[in-house]
């Protein structure tokens, strides 16, 4: 399997997922919330390719429509932690000293918790809403961004071109913003891509245990949870399709991240 092919496939898959997220409601064959008492727990067929659930709702439509919610939770969480994390990380890496110690201690403290458990605690304390799922996911991702950004900044802090910029009389904050920060972006992009998958898994995990998204909203994690009860009686399609969608989305982001990593850093190939 050529590596370029893998990257191309994962990138097309990524575009497809984004497309579903944007236009899912128009593509779904049925209303994802419409119940039909006469048509419950039907296995996959031509009319319902993914079958129907215990309330007679079309699983395919629900899986498609759920894309937007799952993606937007993950995307907002990742965006939040990227902005805050890279700001804190570059400050810590560039100025070092007390900044570094305080920010480092802060991120170590978050890391001292098992992260998913901390997310559960945060949602429990802040309240059981979708926004709080986003905040919780953002907070538990923060240390990774701080770490990458700090490391990438501090290796560049002493670079010749930074000293050259100082010789041009450019202020420290501008050096950080224009000379150092843009060069830390490629490794940060890799981090984002790898993190997206994890953020999706996390959010889905939280809703699987009943946090955040409430029924009847379609979301992959909660759909798997709803389908779980029927697994032992053989109705596999309820849980399989949302679970597979979740898996494919995460897989796609991970492949993309690996591909990006190879592009950005050919030496650290895996």
């Amino acid at each position: 399997m050529s590596e370029n092919l893998v990257t191309v496939v994962s990138f097309s898959l990524f575009l497809f997922i984004v497309f579903l997220g944007l236009f899912g409601e128009f593509l779904a064959p049925y209303d994802p919330l419409a119940t039909a008492a006469s048509n419950t727990l039907r296995p996959p067929s031509w009319t319902h390719p993914f079958g129907t659930d215990n309330l007679g709702r079309d699983v395919l439509s629900r899986v498609i429509v759920a894309t937007r919610l799952d993606l937007s939770i993950a995307l907002s969480a990742v965006a939040l932690s990227f902005v805050i994390g890279s700001a804190l990380g570059s400050v810590a890496g560039f100025w070092g000293g007390w900044w570094d110690r305080i920010i480092g201690r802060f991120s170590d403290t978050i890391m001292a918790f098992p992260l998913f458990v901390l997310a559960m605690g945060i949602v429990a304390a802040l309240g059981n809403t979708v926004e709080n799922i986003v905040y919780a996911t953002a907070i538990i991702n923060l240390p990774f961004y701080i770490r990458v950004s700090r490391a990438e900044t501090s290796v560049r802090r002493e670079a010749g071109y930074v000293a050259a910029a100082r010789l041009c009389g450019i202020s420290e904050i501008r050096i950080l913003a224009t000379q150092v920060f843009p060069n830390t972006l490629p490794p940060m992009m890799v981090q984002i891509s790898l993190n997206m998958g994890w953020a999706i898994l996390n959010a889905a995990g939280l809703s699987f245990i009943g946090l955040g998204v409430r029924a009847p909203d379609a979301e992959w994690g909660i759909m798997v949870a709803e389908g779980a009860t029927y697994i032992v009686s053989g109705e596999w399609w309820l849980a399989l399709f949302p679970g597979a969608a979740l898996m494919i989305a995460v897989f796609c982001f991970n492949l993309l991240g690996d591909g990006l990593r190879d592009l950005v850093d050919p030496q650290r190939r895996t």
């Binding site: 010749g160 071109y161 000293a163 009389g169 060069n183």
Partner: peptide, 22 residues
């Protein structure tokens, strides 16, 4: 860094790769 003399002292760095912004 803010006064005109800044321009009067310049430097050529050791590692040509490291001293250019990629």
């Amino acid at each position: 860094a803010q006064i005109p003399q800044r321009a009067k002292i310049q430097m050529v760095f050791q590692d040509p790769t490291d001293s250019l912004n990629p």
